[in-house]
């Protein structure tokens, strides 16, 4: 069976400074994988390179066996919350509908059936009651759920999420994890940039330890070892684990 995500020898440089060095990664279909690593390890860059948002210096990426452009409609993306202007004059429903713009194609506007879909997506993240709110009135966790709903409505086979659990409240974290797990059980592949090492083993099946290079990847039980964490974070991490 073809891998959901295949990254070969991926090197990405920013102004001649390498941000990712020679990354190889295979993510099988139906896997929920965390990407962890220190700040500046290239986690976001990896996601962006997979999505073709950044041009790699070398290497290639295949999603479902094809280049990204050919399978874009099967890929859902949840960017970091901080990347957009939340004072933008638009409603929650509108933001979710943006997930359908790719499918709608040029010129066509979202109609009633699309709106229904958007409400359904909002229901999944428990935000249907907020559909007509202006987005600036939402809390951080609510904003994250809206972004998640926008990805869910894409009905993709592969999801890439950048720090969806960063700075959200406990209820939202729980809700998001439930959604991630239900996505996995319906056979979707989800790659999640994650920052909280304590929860990696409870939330995820597999993990990629990243620090410019790929330190390790695979099932959490095999890859998420003290040695690998030490290599990823430069030894500092041992303290945190001992304190547990």
């Amino acid at each position: 069976m073809v891998n959901a995500i295949e990254v070969r020898d991926l090197t990405v440089a920013y102004r001649e400074r390498p941000v990712l060095w020679d990354i190889d990664l295979d993510v099988a279909s139906g896997v929920l994988m965390a990407v962890v690593g220190p700040n500046g390890a290239g986690k976001t860059t990896l996601i962006k390179a997979i999505l073709g948002l950044m041009k790699p210096a070398a290497g290639q990426v295949r999603i479902l066996g094809k280049p990204y452009r050919n399978v874009a409609s099967s890929v859902g993306y949840v960017p970091q919350r901080g990347t957009v202007d939340w004072d933008f004059p638009t409603s929650v429903l509108d933001v979710v509908l943006m997930g359908l713009y790719g499918r709608l194609g040029w010129i066509r506007r979202p109609g009633r059936s699309e709106r229904k879909e958007a409400i359904a997506a909002l229901e999944k993240v428990d935000m249907a009651g907020f559909a007509h709110r202006q987005i600036s009135q939402l809390s951080g966790g609510q904003r994250q759920r809206v972004f998640l709903a926008r990805a869910l409505i894409q009905d993709a086979r592969v999801y890439l999420m950048d720090e969806p659990l960063q700075g959200v409240d406990a209820t939202t974290e729980r809700a998001i994890i439930d959604i991630l797990h239900s996505l996995r059980s319906s056979g979707k592949t989800v790659l999640v940039v994650h920052h909280d090492l304590q929860t990696v083993s409870t939330y995820f099946d597999e993990v990629l330890l990243l620090n410019v290079r790929r330190i390790a990847s695979g099932p959490v039980s095999e890859a998420f070892t003290d040695t690998n964490l030490g290599l990823t974070y430069g030894g500092r991490i041992a303290i945190i684990k001992d304190a547990q």
């Binding site: 090197t11 001649e16 060095w21 190889d24 210096a57």
Partner: peptide, 21 residues
Amino acid sequence: KRRRRQKWQFAIKMLVIHLLQ
């Protein structure tokens, strides 16, 4: 000029790292 110079150096580095891995 810098990009031209660095292109080769960068590629060589990439190659040796690839081989090492």
